[in-house]
């Protein structure tokens, strides 16, 4: 477990998230504090409904907390408006989802290009960067395929290439192997290991011990609270 002296990328303290469901209030996160530094490899674990995805959305600036503070690279996220959050997501965060979340009518290359489109990068440069990213995840021969022409593992690789293409500060993966068979899941995990070794910061949400064992730090959640936060002394990396 690395705890670098430099400023942490993520620092949240006493974060809570409450969803209103009619008259009922759902406390998805109750009081969560967490600090994450550069080039960490963290697994967020916990049973279904414990608030993992909610926390990950918060960390990825997709959602804002009901209370508590969130500093991203020292900047208070609560002060930012929708467009500023979009810009942080675009530049600093790479998302990988359980359901891939690719645009079905766009090719692999176009999907990977998309974050660069919103970053305002010119077409030629965009294609070059997207090709590089796809090559990196081993899909140099599948660039013009649409998602429905790719296997699950290949789709997740496209998603990872898309997450990587802007060279973000952190990669957030919510159950990235949840829709894959175990062999393919293993391949994807190897890819994450590789990304970590290359210097990326990786946050992995999972409820499977086998997957979590790859990480160097394991944060366990229950009922919207952090139950434990421990180093994994024997990572499978």
């Amino acid at each position: 477990m690395t705890q670098p002296d430099q400023q942490p990328i993520i620092s949240i303290s006493h974060i809570a998230k409450v969803y209103e469901m009619g008259d009922e209030q759902v406390h998805a996160l109750r009081d969560v504090s967490l600090t994450i530094g550069a080039n960490e490899y963290i697994a967020l674990m916990g049973p279904s409904g414990s608030g993992k995805s909610t926390l990950m959305n918060m960390l990825g600036c997709l959602d804002t907390p009901s209370s508590g503070t969130y500093l991203f690279n020292g900047e208070n996220v609560s002060d930012l408006n929708d467009d500023e959050l979009a810009e942080i997501r675009n530049r600093e965060i790479g998302f990988v989802f359980q359901t891939f979340n690719l645009l079905p009518r766009a090719t692999a290359l176009q999907n990977v290009e998309l974050p660069l489109v919103y970053a305002g990068i010119a077409k030629a440069k965009r294609i070059e960067m997207a090709e590089q990213s796809l090559t990196h995840v081993g899909l140099d021969d599948r660039m013009d395929h649409k998602p429905n022409e790719l296997s699950g593992g290949q789709r997740q690789r496209v998603a990872i290439a898309r997450a990587l293409v802007t060279n973000p500060s952190i990669i957030l993966a919510d159950e990235p192997t949840g829709n894959l068979d175990s062999k393919t899941g293993q391949d994807i995990m190897n890819l994450f290991n590789e990304l970590w070794r290359a210097g990326n910061t990786v946050i992995l949400v999972t409820h499977e011990e086998d997957i979590a064992r790859h990480a160097h730090r394991i944060v366990r959640m229950r009922d919207g609270l952090i139950e434990s936060d421990e180093a994994n002394t024997k990572p499978l990396t």
Binding site: L62, D83, A86, E87, R89, L103, L114
Partner: peptide
């Protein structure tokens, strides 16, 4: 809607 969510997640602003 889902497509809009994906686009926003990867950085599309309101104007986009």
């Amino acid at each position: 809607t889902r497509e809009i969510g994906i686009r926003k997640a990867i950085g599309a602003k309101r104007f986009s």
